[in-house]
């Protein structure tokens, strides 16, 4: 509809002139084409680094969809702004048209905006649920003996998941990992610091908490951030699809050395994992023995215990 212009009260108009619409559409198409062409080449620059777990892949899908919608919105708005700025400057002999919105003028922009909002909402719910659905361990993974699944917060755990459950405890400024206990003999806990070792192709459920202040567990290749809050247990999961070391870093400010609160997840084969656990148990048992002996000796000789 062409804007009617009068000198008295504003006339009704509900749409921009065709030229502008054409310009906006053309810019949109050009932008989209460029984005599609550039995406494979520049995905490394414009997006997160590759994911190695089903939930991380879901997050990447969500990122690309949402960021393309955002980029299109930015493009359309700024193109229209620049067009308006260039075309409608004050010039000699030009009088402004006092056009104002008639009834229904806002329906045209409101419908696509509502469609974007609703579309992103539906998409968000679906993709988020998908990322929360724990995938079962595959046949190549560690056939974890315990099929006992503890309460796992917001996660949906299938019956055949056979997950490896690991407690992750944040403390200033490192992470402690408690591995599941399989043998009923000392040492009664198997743990490691800073580096988590897990078998490949195996579903791992992490129970994240903190003993002091808030931290955030974040290994970008293996899923999203979860907050470690004292007094709460937050669950997340991953199933690494290839061996390797995946770095990450806490993303919640926790005081002086927060920037060095890093963590690594080393993904190894199931056999290597079992060896690692055995090795760890031997080391811990040896260390506990040593300490116990030292304490006993100290007590025997009357020296001050450390």
């Amino acid at each position: 509809m062409a804007p009617r212009t009068t000198n008295t009260r504003p006339a009704a108009s509900s749409a921009a002139t065709p030229g502008v619409k054409g310009l906006a559409i053309a810019l949109g198409i050009v932008g989209l084409t460029l984005a599609v062409l550039a995406a494979p080449a520049d995905a490394n620059v414009l997006g997160p680094r590759a994911g190695h777990s089903p939930n991380a892949d879901d997050i990447r899908t969500a990122y690309w969809v949402a960021i393309v919608v955002a980029a299109l919105l930015i493009l359309v708005i700024n193109a229209a702004l620049i067009a308006a700025l260039v075309r409608f400057r004050a010039r000699r002999g030009l009088t402004p048209k006092r056009l104002a919105a008639g009834p229904g003028a806002f329906m045209r922009p409101a419908v696509p905006l509502a469609a974007i909002a609703i579309g992103l909402f539906v998409f968000g719910v679906v993709i988020t649920s998908d990322a929360r659905d724990v995938q079962p361990t595959t046949s190549q993974g560690l056939n974890a003996s315990n099929d006992l699944v503890a309460q796992a917060g917001g996660l949906t755990v299938p019956a055949d998941a056979k997950p490896l459950e690991i407690n992750v405890v944040g403390q200033r400024w490192l992470w402690r990992f408690d591995y599941p206990q399989t043998l009923n003999q000392p040492p009664y806990s198997t743990f490691s610091y800073s580096e988590l070792v897990v078998p490949v192709h195996t579903t791992v459920i992490l129970h994240v908490t903190s003993t002091d202040v808030d931290h955030r567990w974040f290994i970008p290749a293996l899923g999203g951030q979860v907050e470690a809050v004292p007094g709460h247990e937050t669950e997340t999961w991953f199933r690494a699809d290839s061996k390797g070391v995946y770095p990450g870093q806490s993303t919640a400010y926790s005081g002086t050395s927060y920037a060095v609160m890093r963590a690594w997840v080393r993904v190894v084969s199931p056999q290597q994992y079992q060896q690692f656990v055995k090795q760890k148990r031997r080391e811990i048992a040896a260390a506990q023995d040593y300490v116990q002996k030292a304490v006993q000796q100290g007590a025997a000789t009357g020296a001050a215990t450390p």
Partner: peptide, 14 residues
Amino acid sequence: AVELAISVIAVGWQ
């Protein structure tokens, strides 16, 4: 627009 993208829960996690 970027906030809009971050409002999607899974993107917020990242």
